[in-house]
Every structure is written in C-alpha cells, then in structure tokens.
Computed example of a mutant assay.
Amino acid sequence: MTSLKGLSCEACSADAPKIGEDEKRSLLGEIPDWQLVELDGEEQLQRVFRFRNFAEAQAFTNRVGELAEAEGHHPAILLEWGRVTVRWWTHSIGGLHKNDFIMATRTDVAYES
C-alpha cells in the first residue's frame, strides 16, 4: 500500500462511497494515534494534540487551518489551553473517505514539525 504521507486529496462528490471496513482498518494502522468516533451518526477520525501553552496550541491550529484551505477539506477544530482536538470526516458523504486519512496524516506531520 502507498503511504498516506505521499498522497493528495482527490475530489469527492456527495455520491462518493464511504471507505470500506478492510481499507479503514488498514489505513488506521498508519495513523495509530487517531480514534474512530461517531458524532451525529457520522463516523469521524479524532485526535487530541497536547501543548505547553495556549500560544503553541493556537499556532498549531493555524497550521492545520492552512493545510485544510490548501486542500479544500476542512476539519472540526477545538482550541483550548494546552490542547487542540481535530476531527476529520467528509461532510458531503456523512462519513469517512480516504481523504480524511490523508489529512489526518498531514495533521500528524504538522504536529511533529
């Protein structure tokens, strides 16, 4: 399988299929710090990132926002003192698409830098 780090998001229409269970399990192996959560009946990827203070958390939030704008794919982001919660899912299909796993990987890279 191709590493998620080398992939770009693809255009996704409202009739695009949600990711299959086998592929989902495989892709989750590439992003072990992320959890599957279900909110409002939609499966999403979620991770909480920890920081030493609010300024670092805010700077990270801005980096994730820039990544999202560049791909036209936007997460839910909760900024708090010392932590940021990011949730990725594809709004148009009401669940998970490969794009969400790609963006989770890019979010991890932004956190590591």
Rank of each mutant, 00 (worst) to 15 (best):
S3G: 13
E69G: 13
V86L: 13
K24L: 13
E112I: 01
A104L: 00
T61L: 10
Y111K: 00
P32Q: 05
H97K: 03
D15Q: 11
Q44E: 13
S26K: 10
S113L: 02
L27M: 10
I77R: 07
Q35S: 15
L79I: 07
A110D: 09
T85K: 09
A59C: 01
D40F: 00
H91S: 11
S26H: 14
D100G: 02
I77C: 06
I31M: 08
I102A: 04
E69Y: 08
H74D: 09
L45N: 10
L27W: 04
A76Q: 14
S8C: 07
I77P: 11
P75Q: 02
S26A: 10
S13W: 05
A59E: 11
H91T: 07
C9F: 03
H91P: 12
R83E: 08
R63M: 04
W88C: 03
F49V: 00
E21N: 12
I102G: 09
G20V: 07
I102L: 01
K24E: 15
I102C: 01
G29P: 14
D22P: 11
F60A: 04
L4K: 06
S8W: 09
N62E: 10
D40I: 00
M103N: 04
A14S: 15
I19M: 06
L39K: 15
R25Q: 15
G29R: 14
D108F: 00
D40N: 03
I31Q: 08
F60G: 00
M1I: 08
F60V: 02
C9E: 05
P75M: 01
F54Q: 02
S8E: 15
K18R: 15
D108N: 08
I77N: 08
W88T: 07
S8L: 15
T85P: 01
T2G: 12
T2L: 14
L28Y: 11
P17T: 08
G82A: 03
I93F: 09
A59W: 00
G95W: 02
V84W: 07
L7W: 11
W34D: 02
K18T: 14
K5P: 09
R25Y: 10
N62I: 13
F54G: 02
N62G: 01
C12H: 03
W34P: 03
S13C: 02
G29D: 12
T85S: 14
G6I: 04
F49C: 00
R83K: 15
R63V: 06
W81H: 05
G94A: 03
L7N: 11
L7H: 10
G94Q: 11
G94H: 07
D22L: 14
E56T: 00
T61S: 13
N62K: 06
A55F: 06
I93S: 08
Q44P: 08
E80F: 04
E30Y: 03
A16T: 15
L27P: 09
W89Y: 15
G6E: 15
S113Q: 13
L79K: 02
I31P: 12
A59L: 06
C12V: 12
G41T: 05
L36H: 02
A16S: 15
K24T: 10
